[in-house]
Amino acid sequence: MAHIGPSGFSPYPVAVYEGVLNPPPGKALMFNEIVDEEVAMREAAKAMLTRPNPTIFPGPQVLYAWNEEAKEKAKLVRKMAEVLGAKIIPMYDYRPKYPKINPAIEINPNHPNLTIWHNKIKACIFVGVHCHYANVALKIIRAETDCFTIAMCGMAGHEDAMITLRDQHTEEMEKFIKIAEEVKRGLGRS
């Protein structure tokens, strides 16, 4: 845990100052608890299937076809949205957009709350967003909205998300889709 510097520098609550750390490899983080990946995936799917206006926010790493994995992941994001009945709103650029973004069709990491407020999103998945901007956006969402955030991260995860799934690549995304289908059936929805 970071001990250097006053937490007051941050205008927002920061999970790491509350002792919440990223999960170790092979595990996931659910609120402030380290759990098995599958448990977290089930809860994430449940949140997306039961909360109003679930939305997936794909970032540049899956929006642009910069390698074969990205192309594959884009297909899986599409499938995931289909299974979860979620909307897709892209985070295609990290630069602040002036005079303002159109929150109905885009999300910007510097003011993600605008998109969440506008669309009344109560559950969302971040996928393919570069870590530094996911960190910024998730802190803002955590402070400014009551949206249930799920970080699907290719690296170490994001402690500011409600559920953090780390080391998520195509195989893990496929696993999540399967679990989501099971949860959906369990909820009596086809």
């Binding site: 794909p58 540049p60 929006l63 642009y64 076809a65 910069w66 192309k71 884009a74 994001v77 599409r78």
Partner: peptide, 8 residues
């Protein structure tokens, strides 16, 4: 890096 994935 500028090619948008067809699926999205």
């Amino acid at each position: 890096i500028y090619d948008i994935n067809e699926d999205l």
